[in-house]
Computed example of a mutant assay.
Amino acid sequence: MIAITGASGQLGQFVVQGLLKHTAAANIVALVRNVTKATALSELGVTVRQADYNQPDTLATALHGVEKLLLISSSEVGQRVPQHQAVIHAAKQQGVALLAYTSVLHADSNPMLLAAEHKATEQAIHDAGIPAVILRNGWYTENYTQSVADHIASGIVMGCAGDGKFYTASRQDYADAAVAVLLATEPQAGKVYELAGDTGFTLSEYAAEISRLTGKGVHYHNVTPAEYASFLCELGLPGAFAAVLADSEAQAAIGALADSSKTLSRLLGRATTPWQHSLQARLKIPV
């Protein structure tokens, strides 16, 4: 059986849907914090089990009989390492044959604050001695397109990335990559994939594309990391998380989220989704 943590989340749902195209629902285990909120997965015939990162005693039971496990990184920045370690411990205890982990691009050398927990998790996996494959995901295009309505309304894309390029891919692309690895016939243990979109863009180019598609005047306004963090706080983000996001953009300015290796498209066997297409889809403009 193949299990997916965070299966009811945005990435997890795409992974489950992808697996269902290639294997029977009986082979898939959706691990979720609250099973009552995963009825849609149950209706697909997928086995749903409770697995709470903060309740380690639920994890060993949830992983019973699981051969392959996709550990989707926790959304709780600042608490990820102990949460991930609990899953890793349970996976080893249950004899999971392959653990796949969604890390971040170039985690071993990435200077972003956000990368520290991923690097620590990768080390914990290594120290546990469990067979593993690391999926170092770059930025999701949706990180920006989800806010396009606000960009149009204000006429501004605010950020602190300067002329740094983001080699983003769609959430669907990263999910399809995870499916490819989980279903691969060749051994995956020990592999590390640096995954990013085929092409990159600056936030100035992103703003210009919004203008082109909508006819609205939208431009990129570059500010200092401190100013950007303050802006995010005004939008309602917690201060610590706003600081992490501002740091990510500041590091992107010097290439932290750039990767032109096209490893992702080779793994997929197709080109990654152009960021322009993701933007058009968000705007409900036919591609």
Rank of each mutant, 00 (worst) to 15 (best):
Ile28Glu: 08
Asp198Tyr: 10
Ala25Gly: 09
Gln50Thr: 13
Asp127Asn: 14
Ile156Leu: 07
Ala115Val: 00
Gln85Thr: 12
Lys119Tyr: 08
His89Asn: 13
Tyr53Asn: 01
Ser278Leu: 02
Glu142Trp: 06
Gly236Phe: 11
Gly155Ser: 08
Gly65Ala: 07
Leu113Asn: 11
Gly155Pro: 05
Glu142Val: 05
Thr141Cys: 09
Phe231Tyr: 15
Val46Ala: 07
Thr199Val: 12
His22Asn: 13
Glu234Asp: 14
Leu279Trp: 03
Phe166Thr: 11
Val32Thr: 11
Thr202Arg: 08
Ser261Asn: 09
Glu122Asn: 13
Asn110Asp: 08
Ala7Gln: 04
Pro82Leu: 06
Ala51His: 01
Glu117Gln: 13
Asn34Leu: 03
Pro111Cys: 09
Ser265Leu: 01
Asn54Phe: 13
Ile254Asn: 07
Ser74Phe: 03
Pro82Gly: 05
Ala51Pro: 02
Tyr53Thr: 01
Ala124Pro: 05
Asn54Leu: 13
Leu264Trp: 02
Ile125Arg: 07
Lys37Glu: 13
Val87Ile: 13
Gly65Glu: 11
Lys119Gly: 05
Gly215Thr: 09
Glu194Lys: 02
Ser230Tyr: 12
Lys191His: 14
Thr202Ser: 15
Arg171Lys: 14
Gln123Gly: 03
Gly162Ala: 08
Val96Leu: 05
Thr168Asn: 13
Glu209Arg: 10
Met112Trp: 00
Val104Trp: 00
Val192Trp: 03
Thr199Gln: 15
Asp259Lys: 04
Ala242Gly: 09
Ala161Cys: 10
Ser260Pro: 01
Ser42Ile: 05
Asp127Gln: 15
Gly162Trp: 04
Asn110Cys: 11
Leu195Trp: 06
Val15Asp: 04
Ser265Lys: 03
Ser230Lys: 14
Ala196Ser: 15
Ile210Gln: 04
Val181Pro: 01
Gln94Tyr: 06
Thr141Asp: 10
Val157Met: 05
Lys284His: 12
Leu135Asn: 00
Ala51Asp: 03
Thr199Lys: 12
Tyr206Phe: 15
Ser8Cys: 08
Gly155Cys: 07
Ala153Met: 07
Ala86Lys: 02
Val96Pro: 04
Gln83Gly: 03
Gln83Glu: 12
Leu264Asn: 06
Gln85His: 10
Thr199His: 15
Ala7Tyr: 04
Leu195Met: 09
Asp52Ser: 13
Val96Arg: 09
Asp173Pro: 10
Leu237Val: 02
Ser75Gln: 14
Val15Gly: 01
Gly129Glu: 02
Arg33Pro: 02
Leu31Gln: 04
Gln146Phe: 11
Ala196Glu: 10
